[in-house]
């Protein structure tokens, strides 16, 4: 148990759990960096959600008129999703900057 006590990562304390996968916690990340990364991806997600909601309403409306619009509606609706991916990349870059 000596090794376990030295380890500051709470998820790696118990030796019984050796078969479990563990989430890697980067100890070097400062709180402010983590918050910055969270804001980066979070605001992007809210923005994408806002955009998708607006497009989705119109797409569902069009689909209820004519089911052929499913494909086109889906494409239009998911277009803003890429914004979150960009946010995610920026967040990962922020976390890796250290």
């Amino acid at each position: 148990m000596k090794e376990g006590e030295k380890n500051t990562n709470p998820l790696e304390r118990n030796k019984k759990q050796s078969y479990l996968l563990k989430i890697k916690v980067n100890k070097m990340v400062e709180p402010i960096t983590a918050i910055a990364a969270a804001i980066g991806v979070g605001i992007c997600a809210v923005a994408a959600g806002y955009a998708e909601a607006k497009i989705g309403v119109a797409a569902v409306g069009a689909m209820s008129e004519n089911e052929k619009f499913f494909g086109k509606g889906l494409i239009m609706t998911v277009l803003p999703e890429t914004i979150v991916i960009f946010g995610l990349i920026v967040s990962i870059m922020i976390l890796n900057a250290h």
């Binding site: 998820l11 759990q17 999703e81 890429t82 991916i85 995610l88 990349i89």
Partner: peptide, 23 residues
């Protein structure tokens, strides 16, 4: 091309959730 990063995002989200449940 960057849109394919969702493969990572969706995959990790599901893996993390599974790990948390196990923990």
């Amino acid at each position: 091309i960057l849109s394919y990063m969702r493969i990572m995002a969706v995959g990790l989200a599901s893996a993390y959730l599974a790990i948390l449940v196990n923990e």
